[in-house]
């Protein structure tokens, strides 16, 4: 039998959980970004896309449960590994000269929480509006009971400079997080030997640039009223 507890107790097992959940979440953000490109094709296109996502409510809730579960596990793994890491080096060096680690890898523990705050606010902003976001910003509309007016809501939100800038910064952090994470997750799962490493790096960097860059382009275009 698969001993889930035993896997979780080992650091390599926890890393595998972190990597696998990271993969699920990364996969989602790719689709999410591509879908949001609809904003460039006008109001109808965006709203139809929004309505399509809500067409089968059961599916939407299933996706939410999977993504929410992945996120919770991803954070739990991070907390466990961070503790283990701190316990492993109780006394810091006086001089540290990094050679191979990057700004992306060394800031994972900071960009992660920024992205988490972003996710919470983003859900309050655009998914659960009407439930608790009135205090954040007024003027959201629902197309019908299930489908929000995606275009109106997105543009209203991101045209507010504070939110627009916050979304851009948060997505830059997200890009940093992925730049390291998207390669590391393959290595943690044992999927990148010598032969695959080059391909994995290229694919991961390309997709990271696509997702973070795409999101930033969308937010910037709305903030600057290129898309109204």
């Amino acid at each position: 039998m698969i001993d889930v507890g035993r896997i979780w107790r080992s650091s390599a097992g926890t890393k595998a959980v972190m990597a696998a959940t990271g993969m699920i979440l990364f996969g989602f953000t790719i689709v999410h970004m591509l879908g949001n490109l609809n904003v460039f094709f006008g109001e109808k296109s965006m709203n139809d896309y929004g309505a399509m996502l809500h067409a089968v409510p059961e599916l939407a809730y299933f996706a939410r449960v999977v993504l929410g579960g992945a996120l919770v596990l991803h954070i739990a793994a991070m907390v466990k590994l961070l503790r283990q890491s701190q316990a492993a080096r109780p006394q810091a060096y006086k001089v540290v000269t990094p050679k191979a680690s990057t700004i992306y890898s060394r800031t994972m523990r900071f960009t992660g929480p920024v992205v988490l705050v972003f996710i919470v606010l983003h859900l309050l902003n655009l998914t659960f509006h009407g439930v608790g976001s009135d205090f954040l910003h007024p003027g959201f509309k629902m197309q019908n009971e299930h489908a929000p007016e995606a275009y109106h809501n997105l543009t209203t939100l991101l045209q507010m400079p504070m939110w627009g800038v916050f979304y851009i910064i948060a997505n830059a952090c997200f890009g940093f997080h992925l730049w390291h994470g998207a390669v590391a997750m393959f290595r943690s799962l044992g999927l990148s030997g010598e032969r695959q490493l080059g391909t994995v790096k290229m694919m991961a960097s390309g997709l990271t640039a696509l997702v973070a860059g795409g999101n930033i382009v969308i937010a910037t275009s709305i903030l600057l009223h290129v898309v109204k």
Binding site: S11, A12, L81, H180, V183, A184, R187
Partner: peptide, 14 residues
């Protein structure tokens, strides 16, 4: 490795 108190691998590459 874990029982000895070594830390987890973050793939930093150092």
């Amino acid at each position: 490795h874990d029982a000895e108190g070594f830390g987890p691998c973050s793939q930093h590459g150092e």
